[in-house]
């Protein structure tokens, strides 16, 4: 096994474990910590796929901003009691999701896809290349995204404000 596959399988194993911990741990703070681990592992996987810019964004936006927001809300609401474990319901939900995986995995495993990546240029995945495409082909979605973020800010202030 070469180094690239070794890194992939190591990351994949850790990622699946971290994701399972997010779903099955009963303490909310522990779930959040497992989610941070999963997001950072995905960021590392982005580097192996030649997307360094998005790796940095993943760490800053997801593992940074969004997770701080989650932890802030968890500590703000302070949900004391652990969630009850409903064995039957947990088993049923897990079974349903495994059926979904059972449909998805054979579907992608048997589809006709390129086996080898295209040879990457030096610029592939760099901020420069991303910015060129963002400000030429995708300039309208970019502007709409900025409006969306503004709406989200105003919406959050309105929703979370104490009414009186």
């Amino acid at each position: 096994m070469d180094t690239a596959s070794f890194i992939f399988y190591l990351l994949a194993t850790l990622l699946v474990i971290a994701s399972l911990l997010v779903v099955f741990l009963r303490n909310v703070v522990h779930c959040a910590m497992a989610l941070v681990t999963a997001l950072l592992l995905i960021a590392v996987m982005f580097v192996t796929l030649h997307a360094p810019m998005l790796c940095v964004l993943q760490v800053m936006v997801y593992a940074g901003a969004i997770m701080v927001l989650f932890l802030f809300v968890i500590m703000f609401l302070n949900p004391g009691a652990l969630e009850q474990q409903r064995g039957l319901w947990w088993g049923f939900g897990t079974l349903l999701a495994m059926m979904l995986a059972g449909v998805l995995v054979p579907l992608v495993a048997t589809s006709d896809l390129p086996a080898d990546p295209v040879a990457a240029t030096e610029l592939f995945g760099s901020p420069e290349m991303l910015a060129k495409s963002l400000f030429s082909d995708y300039v309208l979605p970019f502007e709409i995204a900025s409006v969306l973020l503004l709406v989200a800010i105003i919406g959050a202030v309105v929703l979370a404000k104490r009414e009186n």
């Binding site: 699946v16 994701s19 779903v23 319901w89 349903l96 999701a97 495994m98 979904l100 995986a101 995995v105």
Partner: peptide, 13 residues
Amino acid sequence: AVIFSIGVIGVLI
């Protein structure tokens, strides 16, 4: 696909 399914478990249970 596997990670997506794990996320679905979380939403369901």
